[in-house]
Simulated scan of single mutants.
Amino acid sequence: MTYTTEIIIELPLDDFIKKLNNAENMKHWQKGLVRYEYISGIPGELGSKMELFYKLGKREMNLTETIIYSKLPHELHMTYDTKGVHNIQKNYFESTPEGFTKWTSKNEFLPTTFTLRMMILLMPRAFKKQSMKYLLDFKNFAENDISVNEA
């Protein structure tokens, strides 16, 4: 399953990248993020890996993020792997004529188990909705300093 989400963040591109590329900020816009650990490579650079730990209600989940392409401030591509799914996320950033930042995120979800394959088939909107939620939560944090941990 593939889909694209977009959002305008009312910050100049350089300020946007500083907030987005700071791992300490993730807890402010990724609800349920408990902690993260660098596994290998230089944080934020090509090939680096980070483990992300989430608690979503009673469910705990961890993802491994790998940076597969980086041409900041305009592109950042990652993969996310967890039990049952491999996600490729290609992010594109551009300045708007108003001096803001347009964030376009192209996602491809590749299920690795039958259960996730069925989930993606039956509930594709849930994946897109969650991706859009992260973009909106980042926007709220970046523009208004509102953390999902305080909401």
Rank of each mutant, 00 (worst) to 15 (best):
T2H: 09
T2C: 00
T2N: 15
T4S: 10
T4M: 05
E6T: 10
E6K: 15
E10M: 04
E10K: 14
P12I: 07
P12C: 03
D14N: 12
D15A: 14
D15N: 14
K18E: 12
L20Y: 15
L20A: 10
N22W: 10
M26A: 08
K27E: 09
K27Y: 11
V34F: 12
V34D: 04
Y36G: 01
E37C: 02
S40C: 01
G41D: 02
E45Q: 13
E45S: 09
S48V: 01
S48N: 08
M50C: 13
E51I: 02
L52N: 05
Y54D: 03
K58V: 13
R59E: 15
L63G: 01
L63C: 01
I68D: 07
I68T: 14
Y69T: 11
S70E: 14
L72K: 08
L72E: 09
L76I: 08
L76G: 07
H77Y: 05
H77R: 02
T79W: 00
T79N: 06
T79F: 03
Y80D: 09
Y80I: 03
Y80S: 09
D81A: 02
T82K: 08
T82V: 01
K83L: 08
G84V: 02
H86A: 07
N87C: 14
N87Q: 12
Q89V: 15
N91A: 11
F93N: 00
S95Q: 11
P97Y: 02
T101G: 01
S105N: 12
K106V: 14
N107M: 08
F109S: 05
L110E: 15
F114A: 06
T115R: 10
M118I: 14
I120D: 06
I120P: 00
I120S: 04
L121M: 08
M123L: 10
M123D: 03
R125M: 08
R125I: 00
A126N: 11
A126S: 15
K128E: 15
K128S: 06
K129R: 13
Q130H: 10
K133G: 13
K133A: 10
K133Y: 09
L135A: 13
D137L: 00
N140K: 15
E143Y: 04
E143F: 06
N144P: 05
D145C: 00
D145S: 07
I146V: 13
S147I: 11
N149K: 13
